[in-house]
Amino acid sequence: MAAPYPVYRSLVRLYPSAFRHEYGEDLVAHYGDLVADRGARAARTRTALDLAITIPRYHLEHVMTEQHSTTVLGLVIGLFAAGGLASLMTGVGPPSLILFAVAIGLAVTQRSTLSRALRVPNSNLRRRRLQTAAALGGTFVLTYGTFSLTVGDSWTITDTLLALVGIPAMIAAPLFLLAGLLTPRTPNGEDLVRAR
């Protein structure tokens, strides 16, 4: 038998996965109660506004959680460091110093946030970080290999694109590797930290 209320059920899929897993079935059951109690039209009217407001709101809240803030912070630091390295490689000294200084300044001032994110035991996160490091490492090897084979006397658009991908990957790969190795495994293989 098909699941009841397929339209509402499919709209529930638009919520962040953590909220959906925790309350998805409750939402559908609640909607079913509303239909039985007030009628389909009243249920649709009430839930339409609810969906329109809460889907973007819960996604925003999900993005603003500490774990995601740390990821964004790490990416920002990595981008500044990549910009600094790119600037250094192209022979433009002063901007590279500024970019490196910003990256180091951010890392130092936000060290407590970054270290907190590394202290929480989470086997899944550890595995994801190591997988990301492997993917970035592979990306760097691929771009560097292609660059070595195609580089000529003049700098082409292809070279620029390869540098834009390869340099951030070169910086981010060891950072993710370090973060993955520093993230403790969850005791007994259970996930103590649930995605929120």
Partner: peptide, 17 residues
């Protein structure tokens, strides 16, 4: 005050948290 399902369960989640 008429709460929709997601508003209600989002609120309950916060209260539990």
């Amino acid at each position: 005050v008429r709460m929709g399902p997601a508003t209600l369960y989002g609120t309950l989640k916060r209260l539990v948290d």
